[in-house]
Amino acid sequence: MGLPVPDSIVFLAIAVAVVGFISLAVRGRGGRFRTLPMWAGFWIGFGLLLMILSLAPRWASLPLLAAVMFASLRTYFFVAPMRLKDRYSVLLAYATIPLILWPVYLGNVELFFNVVPVTLFLVFPAVFSIGHDHSGLLDSMGRGMLGVVFFLYCGAYLGLMTHLDQDVLPLFGILVLAAELPQRMAGGRLPGRFLGRLVLGVLVAGAIGYLMARQFGVGDWVGLNANQVALGAAFISLAVTAAHLVTNGIASDLEMNAPSTLMGRGVFLGRIVPAVYAAPFFYYFLILVG
């Protein structure tokens, strides 16, 4: 396009703007549509993060990712409170952020795959189990581990993707938007059984991905053809559906339903989790298709 920034960044900005426009246009219908502009607002911030990660050097962009991880984890622990005795586990979760981002900074995938299970998945249960009173231990451990998996493990993949190609992260953002928008427009409960909803969401996302690749050549940025982009979009749609499933389950368990939503709490989970949850899926997809 002749602009000083890559086409992928411009396309991501346009995609976020289109989503924002659609959200504003339909919000007057009420119900679930009322929350769409706030979701689009979240994507302005998240899209900006993807752009910075894509363009800025890692020594400058990864601290920003660390700050986002910290803020997300902090809000998660507010929404899903732990037992008072688990405070050191929460502190450990925060302390793990630099530990997990160090191999990401180095681009050392092998180290990353060793750090994660050892520091996160083995040390955490031990710290949770310290003490004599073990009532609520499994529940508390599950809450803590889920936060760590969402915001540290999945979030770190955004950093890992900076090692692949400059255009990977913008493409990831575009495909997540393409997968999420139809699902959010259709609402949490489409007609039919779960399998029907899943297939419908995957097909729509795949079709959008295919059309974008054919019309605008979004796959060319990272060497994917139209079919592969469609497959990637479908893959991300699966991940986003899974993320919605998980967040709905968590929200239900945390009793964050209509009355709580009226109080304006708990919406954070539903916005950020699908975005970061899809990152490992897309990373593996790119590795698979070469």
Partner: peptide, 8 residues
């Protein structure tokens, strides 16, 4: 704005 959680 009516029922806030419209499932359609």
């Amino acid at each position: 704005g009516g029922i806030p959680l419209a499932y359609g």
